[in-house]
Amino acid sequence: MPNSLNPFELIARRWQPSARFVQQAALATVVMAVVIVVTGGAVRLTQSGLGCDTWPKCTSGSLTPTSDMGIHSYIEFGNRILTYVLCAVIGLLIIAARARTPVRTSLTRLGWAQFWIVMGNAVVGGITVLTGLNPYIVSSHFLLSSTLLTVAVATWWRAREGDAEPRDLVAVPVRQLTRLLIAATGALIVIGTVVTGAGPHAGDARKVHRIPLNWQEITQLHVDFVYIVLGLTVALWFTLRAVKAPAAQRRTVLELLVVLLLQGVVGYVQYFTHLPEIVVGIHMLGSCLVWIAVLRVLLAQRERAALPAAVPGPTGDHETVQPEPAASSR
Rank of each mutant, 00 (worst) to 15 (best):
V118Y: 00
P246D: 12
L257M: 15
Q176D: 11
T108S: 06
H222C: 10
M1R: 09
N6R: 01
R109A: 05
Q322F: 11
G111W: 02
A159R: 04
W291R: 14
V194H: 12
T155L: 01
V321E: 04
A326R: 15
R241Q: 15
N6W: 02
T64G: 03
Q301I: 12
L144W: 04
E161F: 01
V43E: 05
T105H: 02
A245Y: 07
L221I: 15
P173T: 12
L289R: 10
I191W: 01
D53S: 13
A154R: 08
A99N: 00
A152M: 05
T219M: 14
V311F: 05
W237M: 13
L86R: 06
A205M: 15
P246K: 11
L254I: 14
V229Y: 10
A198N: 04
A187T: 15
T64W: 11
I11S: 07
A152Y: 04
V31T: 07
L50H: 09
W116N: 03
V280G: 10
T252G: 03
C52R: 06
L5W: 02
D224N: 14
A26M: 00
V279L: 13
V265P: 06
L50Y: 13
Y84N: 05
C87V: 15
V265Q: 08
G91I: 05
M69H: 05
P246Y: 05
L177H: 13
W157V: 14
L181E: 13
K207C: 02
L307Q: 08
R109G: 08
T252K: 13
I282M: 14
P173Q: 12
H141Q: 03
R98V: 06
Y271M: 12
T185K: 11
P65V: 11
V124Q: 03
V195N: 04
A33W: 01
V43C: 05
F77P: 06
V226A: 15
A122E: 00
H201F: 04
L232M: 14
R98Q: 02
L93I: 07
I11L: 08
L256V: 12
R80E: 01
V229T: 15
P65T: 14
G41M: 12
L257C: 13
I81N: 04
A97P: 02
G286W: 06
N3K: 10
L92R: 04
W116T: 05
V297W: 11
I95S: 00
I95F: 00
D163N: 02
L45R: 09
A327Q: 09
R250G: 11
T64H: 11
R179W: 11
R206T: 13
G203L: 09
V294R: 12
T108Q: 04
V253R: 13
A202Y: 09
V208R: 06
I228G: 05
A305P: 03
S106V: 10
L230V: 14
A33R: 00
D317G: 01
M119K: 03
S140T: 12
V43N: 02
V38S: 06
I90H: 03
C58V: 08
A152W: 03
A327F: 09
Q23R: 14
